[in-house]
Design a protein around this nucleic acid. Structure first.
Lengths: 243, 243
DNA sequence: CGTAACTTTGACCTAAGTCAAGGCGCGTGG
DNA sequence: CCACGCGCCTTGACTTAGGTCAAAGTTACG
């Protein structure tokens, strides 16, 4: 049975901004159900034009796009609270694939109602723009990372981002956070080869900066790793709207 | 003297979607003036929180961010019709620098009015989201390019994108389009070194696929270059809203 | 137990980076 | 009016970070 938005397990987490009562009411109407998928299931396909929008409630996934030469770029790792499908709604058709990596539960919205949401509820329309702009910002950072940083820096950057995100989500436990992906996924996210990713991770492990086993990433001192990444100047995950 | 939005030289270009009369009226109120800056002028600074938003009317520029190690990532090339400052408005403060590369004319809007725009005019709010989502999509492509393509492919990709953009804008003349940047800028956009960029451009020139002199890029057969880039599956610049 | 999906390691290779030196056009000031 | 300085492009010689190939561990599962 579906959770009521008012009792959403995510809302209230430090990461998410509070929502006014009337906006919550609107959300409730907008939400059409919940979807649970097994690990490995594709949620949205590149090119497809899904009639649904989602918010990840539980579990993790991957956004990726595949080039015509067969190579794959992981665009982002999906964690609870992420909104999926805005591109497909606003442009026409999805521009990347989203796939569940663990079992996931998703909040389902009706795409057709998006317009009525924008029309009827400016706060939520603003939040939507906020989300898109934030995603844009993230991709800018990722681009700068892949374009300008070395392998160690890239990996350190990614691990720090994930750790911070999980901390803000409240799913971190003493520097230990869920990271249920394969090394290949991380490699594809950072434009590195699997082998080099593996070796670089080994070096970070030796230096006691990060270890990652069995889907658990553990970064004892985020600050140290952030210094390795050369990300001193960066803002640590700010509060975001939850739709 | 400022151009009236109704006579905007851009509106009406094939690239841009038409705007309803009442939305135009709204735009007119939203617009507070015009700004002309000389080549080389920074328009928005990383970290700053400019009280203005802009739409590029004439001229070209660069969006870039600088990492703490001093390396620079060019995030995008700015052409007429691009909206500047959404990030700064919605998040807090600009996340990258925007700099004029030629003399530019910008349409100026009052950031404080953004909220009233979202509230009072759902069409425009939707367009705003559209713009952010499109920018996000572009950055995803760029990320995939820098992460997964070789040097030749990257450069070919960038040149094709610019050419297509200019064609849609109606500022292309038989495959010749304005591209007033330095090789260093292109290199920084693609995560390549200046030297390698130069040599790769030379090779494309020899193969008669693209030549670029004195700020003019000329791509005789976009399709051929697109094939070199490995971008067969890609959508050729769709119609976008102009704000 | 066998096999399939990941990770790890070692040996070798190459695309792209770095360094360094010239070239070319333009603006400034002597 | 010339020269010299500066910003940008070009080229060649050499180096290297990271890629590719290949094989052996490790688990998990049927």
């Amino acid at each position: 049975m579906a959770t009521d938005c008012a009792n959403c397990p995510l809302r209230g987490r430090p990461l998410f901004a509070a929502l006014a009562d009337k906006d919550l009411a609107f959300m409730r109407r907008f939400k059409v159900g919940e979807l649970t998928v097994e690990a490995g299931t594709p949620i949205m396909m590149e090119g497809s034009n899904s009639p649904q929008l989602f918010t990840a409630l539980r579990g993790m996934g991957i956004r990726a796009k595949t080039l015509s030469n067969g190579r794959r770029q992981v665009v982002n790792f999906v964690y609870p609270g992420d909104f999926l499908g805005l591109q497909s709604a606003v442009m026409d058709g999805m521009r990347h694939t989203v796939e569940a990596v663990t079992r996931m539960t998703l909040c389902v919205f009706d795409r057709k109602e998006l317009w009525s949401l924008v029309r009827g509820n400016p706060e939520l329309a603003y939040d939507l723009t906020w989300i898109a702009a934030t995603e844009e910002h993230f991709l800018g950072e990722a681009l700068a990372t892949v374009g300008q940083r070395t392998a160690v820096e890239r990996i350190a950057w990614a691990l720090v981002r994930v750790t911070r995100r999980c901390e803000a989500l409240g799913i971190a436990d003493a520097g230990r956070v869920p990271f249920p992906f394969r090394q290949q996924d991380l490699a594809d996210a950072l434009g590195l080869s699997l082998v080099h990713t593996n070796k670089t991770l080994a070096r970070l492990r030796e230096r006691q900066l990060a270890s990652w086993h069995d889907g658990i990433l553990s970064v004892p001192e985020t600050e140290k790793l952030a210094r390795v990444a050369g990300m001193e100047g960066e803002d640590p995950a700010e509060r975001r709207p939850l739709i």
